[in-house]
């Protein structure tokens, strides 16, 4: 029962990945693409933790913590670069 619900949740997150990728490809400006990338990384954190549940390995939660930190720094650096203050 619970595993079925988790599978449906994973499918919904995958569908939203596709929609955000459309915005990533369409995005008229660079900032649009970066926003799409930000949403992709935030939702992929949830996806990695879901994967940790399915494979039953706690180490993937650590992976998602590192991924969250790296993506945050990445977005800040790109935004600083776009602002011409880097």
């Amino acid at each position: 029962m619970a595993n079925t619900l988790f599978t449906i949740a994973m499918l919904i997150v995958g569908l939203s990945f596709l929609l955000v990728t459309v915005r990533f490809l369409l995005g008229p400006s660079v900032v649009d693409r970066v926003v799409a990338l930000d949403v992709l990384t935030i939702s992929s954190i949830g996806l990695i933790v879901l994967l940790a549940h399915f494979l039953d390995r706690v180490i993937y939660v650590d992976v998602s913590i590192v991924y969250a930190i790296l993506s945050f720094i990445g977005v800040i650096v790109i935004a600083k670069y776009l602002e011409r203050s880097l």
Binding site: A9, M10, S16, L19, V20, R23, A36, V39, G46
Partner: peptide, 15 residues
């Protein structure tokens, strides 16, 4: 978790 994934979907639609 299911409700949370629905909110992620709303974020994608909004985007």
């Amino acid at each position: 978790t299911l409700i949370g994934s629905l909110f992620v979907l709303f974020a994608a639609i909004g985007l």
